[in-house]
Design a binder for these strands. Structure first.
Lengths: 189, 189
DNA sequence: TCCAACGACTGGACACTGTCAACTTCCACG
DNA sequence: CGTGGAAGTTGACAGTGTCCAGTCGTTGGA
């Protein structure tokens, strides 16, 4: 067993619960009981009930950054599209983490992931872009990715437009409807 | 006093709490105490602790639909841009409602608001658009609006790109960077 | 070798929460 | 009248987060 086996056990158990039933019914005591330890044991690994959310968030942002980096590295065509796909893909594969990462009470950073996005935007807009343009386009891309991910993970989108069979193809179709991907191939007006 | 004064009092109080501190610390008993009634009184107006979220959600979707309808009616230029602005504006003005409306355990409809969006998309794409195109563009617009609203309401965006002074102008700048607004003015390729 | 410190964990206690149940009040309507 | 139901009351219960005082086993000096 590792040096802090219980910590990871409880963390995984919490993520699984959140992925299935959301963060609301999550009970510290029940996690402890499921792990076969006393109700106070988790407090030696997380300061708070709040603390477990921070831990999940940190783990999540590390995984997201990894997914984004891999997507760019293996992207054959447009890096912006690859970034969008990886963001939505991560959210769908790791709902438990994604649901926690952007909680307003957490103010987690995810700095590396954000910097990656800014870099891609900066390259795609070229050297003449103003700071405001970069800011606006970065926000547009993040918003699109985050909104699509949220609406898919939380369910309202499929409740409206019906079930989606091929998620990757769907994300690509949605991206195509916006002007956010493959900017470099387009003639400047 | 109205016929169900306590109901609205508790509802407003709950919305205010959620807008400030999020839905997590919301306590039925504390709401009752704040309203000056016994801890069981709210149960005569909401079946559950859950029920209050449904009530807030319904109220919120009615307000959102109203805001969208008004925005389209008074839009001088592009209805898609007006829709986006009204969506984000609603989220910022009514964080308490917005934070609740899309909870995965709620499956609230918001059917009228969605239909309004689809109508605007259908008109903007013209009569030759396929169903998949309409589906994709509707999703793109909803995602952009929802993502931007969520990132603004929950805070991570301003933590990254710095404080935003003029929200309306910012939303317009972001919309411009996406290809989602003012489609009708563009020449077909 | 001993012993002190320490991290992981246990169990008890407390205030607080959601919710079930039985009771009172009061007003509308036959 | 009276009777039924809606609104509100108090009491009780299990479950929860968290503070506090312990109990182990290990480990690092002396």
């Amino acid at each position: 067993m590792g040096p802090s086996d219980l910590r990871q056990t409880i963390l995984d158990s919490a993520v699984a619960h959140i992925a299935e039933r959301g963060p609301d019914g999550l009970s510290f005591r029940r996690l402890a009981k499921a792990a076969g330890v006393s109700h106070q044991a988790p407090y030696h690994h997380f300061v708070d009930r709040h603390g477990i959310f921070e831990a999940i968030s940190d783990e999540g942002f590390a995984m997201l950054f990894d997914a984004m980096r891999r997507a760019i590295a293996t992207a054959d065509g447009d890096p912006a599209a690859a970034l969008l796909e990886s963001y939505v893909g991560f959210a769908l594969e790791h709902r438990g983490h994604f649901r926690v990462m952007f909680r307003p009470d957490l103010c987690a950073s995810g700095g590396q992931a954000f910097d990656t996005l800014v870099d891609v935007v900066r390259v795609s807009l070229g050297p003449d872009a103003t700071i405001d343009e970069i800011r606006a386009r970065t926000t547009a891309m993040w918003s699109m990715a985050h909104g699509l991910a949220t609406l898919l993970v939380d369910g309202p989108l499929e409740r409206k437009i019906g079930p989606i069979t091929d998620h990757r193809a769907f994300v690509r179709a949605v991206a195509e409807q916006s002007g956010l991907t493959a900017v470099v191939d387009r003639p400047a007006v």
